[in-house]
């Protein structure tokens, strides 16, 4: 048995060297951004594995779309049409309110402008990456102009933000991650607070709410929270969650408030990436057009809507 005696460095030597190397790598990765590029390359190499995970789901969708019964498709189509109609109706109202809001703001000489956000749908490649954190991997990356810190939403509310971008995929930190903090506001009275993740799947902690202000009813069970836009990372006014419980503890400086995130964080297969301030320069011209032109088009807008019907 030659191989038993004739091998390179012994396992002990190897483990010592590789152990030290791992520790050095971890330190570098934590303290500096040198390894960002290495990780990006490796993540491209590993992309097939991530894609293979969603492939069965995609195949199932394709199969059911192609070989599903005709009546099911017709039914689905009718339902979507109905939904589209009602959404359009709300949008009409929204347009109306938006112009009104802009007019009122101009009367007040306030410069805040409601901008049109660019949206891109991304698919979730993997969730539950690491049991100690709350993160997702999505199938859009630097190639699709995703940037670090980009807000990620779903149909119900804010999901989190992009924390790591590689060419084909990126990692989203959910609002429930213990590392995540989000400036929010109570819709009812504008009370500002910060929604921190707790590492639990479906809970947010609201911090720095003084006991007496909670006692006065500045925050009560059932209050709706939206992003406040402070900090500049997230656009304001997107739903974040609902207050679940308020505990007044005299021994603590602040009230213990918990909220339920409104986005279905662990059940989504698709998420929305939004660009509020168009980041890539070449897209800027295209996007800037909309908010500028919108008010001018507005008066004829309803006529145009009415014509086809």
């Amino acid at each position: 048995m030659k191989p038993l005696f004739k091998k390179g460095p012994s396992a002990t030597l190897r483990i010592i060297l590789l152990g030290i190397l791992s520790l050095v790598l971890m330190m570098f990765d934590h303290r500096s951004g040198y390894l960002q590029q290495v990780r990006a390359y490796l993540s491209v190499a590993i992309y097939p594995i991530e894609y293979a995970v969603i492939f069965p789901v995609k195949a199932g969708q394709w199969l059911s779309a192609n070989f599903g019964p005709r009546w099911a498709l017709i039914e689905q189509n009718a339902k979507l049409r109905e939904e589209n109609l009602s959404l359009r109706f709300t949008l009409q109202k929204f347009d109306d309110l938006k112009t009104e809001n802009e007019r009122l703001r101009s009367l007040l000489d306030s410069t805040t402008k409601i901008t049109q956000d660019k949206v891109l749908v991304a698919e979730v490649l993997a969730m539950d990456l690491d049991p100690f954190t709350r993160k997702l991997k999505i199938n859009k990356g630097a190639q699709h102009d995703v940037f670090e810190g980009q807000p990620v939403l779903d149909a119900q509310g804010v999901m989190g933000q992009v924390t790591r971008v590689s060419p084909l995929s990126s990692v989203v930190m959910l609002v429930t991650d213990p590392n995540h903090a989000l400036p929010v506001q109570v819709v009812r009275n504008g009370q500002r607070t910060i929604a921190m993740g707790m590492g639990a799947t479906n809970r947010l902690a609201l911090s720095y709410i003084p006991n007496n202000s909670a006692n006065k009813g500045d925050i009560t069970i059932g209050d709706i929270l939206v992003t406040s836009g402070i900090g500049g990372q997230f656009p304001s006014g997107y739903p974040v969650g609902k207050v679940l419980e308020v505990n007044l503890d005299i021994g603590q400086p602040y009230a213990q408030v918990q909220a339920l995130p409104s986005a279905s964080l662990e059940r989504n297969r698709e998420v929305l990436l939004i660009w509020t301030n168009p980041q890539p320069i070449d897209d800027k011209a295209e996007i800037d057009k909309t908010p500028l032109n919108k008010p001018k088009v507005e008066p004829t807008h309803f006529k145009q809507e009415a014509k086809p019907r």
């Binding site: 791992s22 520790l23 490796l42 590993i46 990456l129 954190t133």
Partner: peptide, 25 residues
């Protein structure tokens, strides 16, 4: 052996977005 484990760990680190070297160790 050890080297295989380490390389696998690096891949898992990238896959699960942990510190590079954590699973490798």
């Amino acid at each position: 052996g050890v080297v295989t484990g380490w390389s696998l760990g690096i891949l898992q680190d990238v896959l699960s977005d942990t510190l590079l070297g954590q699973h490798a160790l």
